[in-house]
Nucleic acid binder design. Structure first.
Lengths: 205, 205
DNA sequence: CGTTGATGCAAGCACGTACTTGCTTGAATC
DNA sequence: GATTCAAGCAAGTACGTGCTTGCATCAACG
């Protein structure tokens, strides 16, 4: 039964490298170190192998935002954005291939869509709790800010190695920059320059 | 010589629909209404046909930002962003396919990169003239804001029809929203709610 | 020991794809 | 009217690709 797992992983890897058409059953079998016939015996067809292979990649993408903002909002958001960005960077080849082949393989839509949507919704909820927008305009501005943060992470993950000039911040600090700008948009001042309350070294008066 | 042009256009169209591997010489010739043999007589090989086809798509993407910001900055930026977004939306299939096949066809990199880079550089120059950032931090923040605006347009063009939930603003007003947020980031107040000077309906005192 | 079940190997089938060859047509040019 | 030249058509070649078949191997389990 170990051949199954090896084939699934190889299928995902070869697909990420060459897309559906380029991921031939010969290449997948070779990458898995398994005979091509075994592939068909275990999965019946290439279609079905690929379909199963997609299920296994899902849970790779970063972690979740907490339901309630904590004391150090910036730290929390930076951690989330960094993890999210790193996760997307790791599977960027897969995402690029998937997005390119949506018309030919519509069943892949859910792979991208289901993975992305909850992250965006989480961010909107979080931002709404942070800012508590009152007017409709403020609510819309908040949503737009979320779209822009989410877009920045998406575009950075997919575009940095293609158009590096459009991403001047170094890769490891980019997420922090995006979050800072996002917080400024929401009117949340950065934690650093604000007063520190009752820490051991606090000066008297 | 008209067959040449028809083949070039058909090649670009079929490539945008199905990628390099999917764009078979049969399909291209059929789409062009030309015999397949003619394709090889005129271009020698599929590779060469595709290479020439790419040259013709370049100049499609929107217009330029002026060198100097004019009086109505918001209007100017909205017009630019809208045109840029529309242009990218029109060729989004092509961009998606190209980005997915960069590893296999590295010569396409310049197609994406050369098209994108100048737009970003223009935006940075424009924003720098607008805000005149003094400190290094301000300069970096300005660049990050430019990355985020440019990322928002990019992600909207490529992602809206895939993950619509992440783009709550309707397609025709989205560019305006992004620009407004961008201007707020730069500390440029929107033109509307500020004092209006010497307009007919201005109230006395 | 004999059976079973997963896997490997060699070969092949049917079809699609890039590309070629040889011949015909038909309109423009001298 | 003879020549030329782009284009069509039919057929074919060599190879890649999804998938099948028949048989051998080999470890696990009763």
């Amino acid at each position: 039964m170990i051949s199954r797992q090896k084939l699934l992983e190889a299928a995902a890897a070869v697909f990420a490298e060459s897309g559906f058409r380029g991921a031939t059953t010969r290449r997948i079998a070779e990458a898995a170190g398994v005979n091509e016939v075994t592939l068909f015996r275990l999965f019946g067809s290439k279609q079905q192998l690929m379909a199963e292979a997609f299920e296994c990649v899902h849970p790779l993408l970063g972690n979740s935002l907490p339901d309630e903002p904590s004391a150090d909002v910036e730290k929390e958001l930076v951690a989330w954005a960094t993890a999210h960005l790193d996760g997307m960077r790791q599977v960027r080849h897969m995402i690029r291939k998937t997005m390119a082949e949506l018309e030919e393989h519509p069943e892949m839509t859910e792979f991208v869509c289901d993975a992305k949507t909850p992250y965006f919704q989480q961010l909107v909820s979080y931002a709404t709790l942070l800012r508590r927008p009152a007017t409709a305009a403020e609510r819309e501005e908040t949503r737009t800010a979320c779209t822009m943060l989410s877009s920045a992470l998406f575009a950075d993950a997919l575009g940095r190695d293609v158009v590096p000039t459009a991403y001047p911040s170094p890769p490891n600090t980019a997420a922090r920059k995006y979050v800072k700008v996002f917080l400024k948009l929401l009117g949340i001042a950065p934690a650093r320059p604000r007063r520190r309350v009752a820490l051991g070294t606090g000066r008297a008066r």
